[in-house]
Nucleic acid binder design. Sequence first.
DNA 1: CTTGTTAAGTTCCATTTTGGAACCTATATT
DNA 2: AATATAGGTTCCAAAATGGAACTTAACAAG
Lengths: 175, 175
Amino acid sequence: MRWEDTCNQTCSVARATSIFGDRWTLLVLRLLFLKVTKFSDIQQTLGITKHRLTDRLNRLLEEEIVYKHLYDETYKRYEYRLTEKGIDLYAVMIVIGQWGDKWLTDGDGAPVEYVHKNCGQNANPALTCSCCGEKLTASSLSLRMGSGLQKKLENEEINKFDEKLYANVFGWEKK
Amino acid sequence: MRWEDTCNQTCSVARATSIFGDRWTLLVLRLLFLKVTKFSDIQQTLGITKHRLTDRLNRLLEEEIVYKHLYDETYKRYEYRLTEKGIDLYAVMIVIGQWGDKWLTDGDGAPVEYVHKNCGQNANPALTCSCCGEKLTASSLSLRMGSGLQKKLENEEINKFDEKLYANVFGWEKK
DNA sequence: CTTGTTAAGTTCCATTTTGGAACCTATATT
DNA sequence: AATATAGGTTCCAAAATGGAACTTAACAAG
């Protein structure tokens, strides 16, 4: 499988990764959340080359993760803003940042802290179970087949890589 | 700035992204969480070439996100297992998967669901404030400087890209 | 009206990364 | 002695990336 075929996988992590799991894209998205939205500002803040940035922004436009918004009528200049789909990636940014804060700061502590506006405290965002509210850890979750996979199985839309993966996850016999 | 210099940024998202924000690495990590841990199984499940996989696994070994575990004494075969640092990335996987479930499944629903072992229900993992327990959204958080950034400022360890970024985030004047 | 400036690209070309296929090595099986 | 298998490594072509120069549309200054 070539990299560009990962978007055809059934797994949601793979499909999402096929969009932003490459060089620069996550860093661009991070800047959009931080309100660095103009082409030249993004380019200078990252030090990325212009054509690379053009490429990444076009991909995000295609995927409707960002849209162009006219911010200067006279010069016809556009900034890149997150759509609802894009804003929904905030959890991804937060969680990646939390992991970096914990494991990559050499004991200096987080460079930036998140304050929860509603309660005024350091939010210290954590993943919890929507049902019982408990904090989730890797060992507290188990997997089961969802409707998306069932439908694909019925319609035989499962490719050989999917098959190999889910054979392992759900213990199907391998040929 | 070249891609390989992103690891020198102050921002935790940038530092984390410099490790797994490239082609294949997130997909490899996902398989390790799904207990696909042998070199050839990972290679065949992804369809990645062997030397590319070798490269990615070596990087994860260097970063101490995975370690090698002897699983076959006679053949001297090793599998790749997540360290504590690696297991801590489970939140990243879950959140990326959740986003994919919501935006990339064409209405078919999630291929895989998470069951919370403790309460037996569909976990539907959500980011919440550790202080008050409320669900967090992009608009409910604000940023403030943390000790990591303060120390770097005192020691003048801020590069020009950091400076440009934090000038924007915290409203410092630009030259 | 000519020159200059700025944001946002595009083009060209060299360098780096990735993909495909063949080859290598240690261990065990036939 | 030949074959199989996991886990690589090597070689080379193809694709992605980086650096620098060029382009375009809009206006501003002299």
